Computed example of a mutant assay.
Amino acid sequence: MTAVQNTAKTFKFSYPTCTNEEVLFKLEVPVEIPHGGSTRELVQRVMKMFHIPVYLEDELNGKLAEFVAEETKKFHNERDAKLLDQLKNSELNIEGIVKNWEKLFKENVMEFAEQKGSSDEEVFAAAYHKLVHSPALDTILQVEATYAQTVMNMLKSRDDDIEKLTQKYVFALHLYQ
């Protein structure tokens, strides 16, 4: 299925000058269709940008809202007609579309559904409880104590080696001074 992109349409508005009603100011503004924002906000931005008089706000807003509604309707009608033509000509992968919808639906439902099953904390608590009350606990504690003693011996050996090297360095430093 091909994604239909938004399009920019030019909104045209003209209004008479203050001094001569036969001379018109012509305004052309590109508007993205379908328009995702508020037409009132867009009107305010256009009025400020092009220094349009305040008394034209309601008329401009009405015409812009009408333009956006009409162009959005055309946009959707054209997009839907293309999709219907593709469907008639068997150009759409219906199976892929259905699978994608199913995946998106499941993701949406899972996002808002209550989580069934155990949380990580509950799983850890159950495993810890099982371990504490198992006969293997003594063996595990003995192995852990052996590992701890081995690590302590290695650290002591490291510290002794560092001390010996430091003494040799200090001695050698005194000799060369």
Rank of each mutant, 00 (worst) to 15 (best):
E57L: 00
E57H: 04
E57Y: 05
D58V: 06
E59W: 02
L60P: 09
N61Y: 00
N61C: 04
G62M: 02
K63I: 14
K63L: 13
L64T: 11
A65H: 09
A65P: 12
E66G: 14
F67C: 05
F67D: 00
V68D: 03
A69N: 11
A69V: 06
E70Q: 14
E70K: 15
E70G: 13
E71K: 14
T72A: 04
T72K: 03
T72L: 02
K73W: 03
K73D: 02
K73L: 09
K74L: 03
F75M: 09
F75P: 11
F75R: 04
F75Y: 10
H76F: 14
H76L: 15
H76G: 09
N77M: 07
N77D: 05
E78G: 15
E78P: 14
D80P: 09
D80A: 11
D80V: 13
D80G: 07
A81Y: 07
A81F: 06
A81E: 08
K82Y: 00
K82S: 08
K82P: 00
K82D: 04
L83P: 11
L84V: 13
L84Q: 08
L84C: 02
L84Y: 01
D85A: 13
D85T: 10
D85P: 01
L87K: 07
K88Y: 08
N89V: 01
E91N: 10
L92Q: 04
L92A: 08
L92E: 03
L92W: 02
L92N: 07
L92D: 04
N93D: 02
N93K: 01
N93A: 04
I94A: 02
I94S: 05
I94V: 13
I94W: 06
I94L: 06
E95C: 03
E95R: 07
E95P: 11
E95N: 12
G96P: 01
I97T: 13
I97W: 12
